[in-house]
Amino acid sequence: MLKGLDPRLNAEVLYALRAMGHGDTLIIADSNFPSEAIARQTVFGELLRMDNLTSAQAAEAVLSVLPLDTFVDDFAGRMEIVGNATEIAPVQSEVQMVIDVAEGKSRPMISIERFAFYDLAKQAFAVIQTGERRFYGCFMLRKGVIAPEE
């Protein structure tokens, strides 16, 4: 255990988050996502796991140390529900609440069509697979910057 760090963040996840740069993307995936195959195609090249957590719990832990990009509209995204792009699943509402708390304001995620999400995930820095069993518990987060101290 380390002081000031969410204990849900394991060493491998922390290493990857630290290695990411401004604009790099991270995928938080549910247990049904083809995480292993897609993770091999990412910059990091290995699957990261947070198996015992829901997508919202993983996002909360990640966002305790990862700043979101404030310069772009696609700072965060959710996988669209097939056949209903505007519907927001409960798991997606939970992650949106986590983002809103981390940002200190409401910033809606963008919607990403399912197969476009797979393509985006292959271009990501890394994939974290969670223990989320609900459908559409897959999200993209874009790393921002930490401003210098005054």
Rank of each mutant, 00 (worst) to 15 (best):
G104C: 13
R78V: 15
I88T: 14
V82K: 08
E87V: 14
A116H: 06
P90G: 03
T86S: 15
D73N: 06
D100N: 12
I88L: 14
N84T: 12
V65S: 05
D100R: 00
A116Y: 08
A76H: 01
V72K: 03
M109H: 04
L66N: 01
M109C: 07
L68T: 00
R107W: 08
I99C: 00
G104L: 14
R78G: 07
F75N: 01
F115T: 12
S106V: 14
P67H: 02
V65Q: 02
S93P: 00
R107N: 13
D100T: 03
S106K: 05
D69I: 06
A85M: 11
V82E: 13
E80P: 00
F75V: 05
S93F: 06
F117L: 10
L68N: 00
S111G: 13
P108Q: 12
D69M: 08
D119I: 12
I110G: 12
G77N: 01
P90Q: 02
F117V: 09
A89G: 10
D74M: 03
L68F: 00
M109E: 13
M79T: 08
V65Y: 03
V72D: 04
D100I: 03
S64V: 11
F115C: 08
V95H: 01
P90E: 05
F117P: 06
A76L: 08
A102N: 02
V91N: 07
D74F: 05
P108A: 10
P90D: 06
R114T: 09
T70A: 07
V82I: 14
S111A: 15
Q92P: 01
